[in-house]
């Protein structure tokens, strides 16, 4: 348990710094900045008690907000996907009860992993950009931005997942 906690803490700090110091300055095609920090939410171990998970996800978003001066938009979006994660997972894997202890994301089918990541990423980005623009007038712009940015976040997330799994099998 302590080893898990330590690895979660390291992942938290690493992803936060990677996001605010590197990824927030990429500006691919002028405006695309992948939000890889939500990989934290994808990888967080499944637990029966979700209180810690919700609070930690909220804090991660809040820390990103601290660095990017954006009020609470990252916190709100990250908390939302943290909350819906379990339901999305149940839906995608088509299971009603998941063995919480033994569950490992990387051992699932790759298409299912992809759908799981894509759904959560798009939900996160939509809330993020929607709260940023804060009006229905710009809905098409919000959808366009969330879609394009999602593509890059998804690609980066899957690449990172591949890297993580490779390391463990060697």
């Amino acid at each position: 348990m302590t080893r898990d906690t330590l690895s979660i803490a390291i992942r938290f700090i690493f992803l936060l710094l990677l996001q605010v110091l590197v990824l927030n300055n990429i500006n691919f095609f002028g405006y695309i900045n992948p939000n890889l920090y939500i990989l934290f939410v994808f990888l967080y171990p499944l637990e029966q008690k979700r209180t810690n998970f919700l609070i930690v996800a909220f804090l991660l978003g809040l820390c990103v907000d601290f660095f990017s001066n954006s009020g609470g938009i990252n916190a709100a979006a990250t908390l939302f996907i943290a909350y819906i994660r379990l339901y999305v997972l149940k839906l995608v894997l088509n299971k009603f009860d998941i063995d919480y202890k033994l569950f490992k994301l990387t051992s699932e089918q790759s298409i299912k992993i992809f759908i799981y990541i894509a759904t959560l990423t798009f939900a996160h980005h939509f809330i993020l950009f929607y709260l940023d623009y804060f009006s229905f007038k710009n809905l098409s712009l919000v959808l366009y931005k969330s879609f394009t940015t999602s593509i890059f976040t998804i690609i980066l997330s899957i690449l990172s997942l591949v890297l993580i799994t490779k390391k463990k099998t060697v």
């Binding site: 809040l62 001066n69 009020g71 609470g72 938009i73 709100a76 709260l131 804060f134």
Partner: peptide
């Protein structure tokens, strides 16, 4: 989080 956003 929403309050923080509105406040900002």
């Amino acid at each position: 989080a929403f309050l923080l956003t509105v406040q900002s």
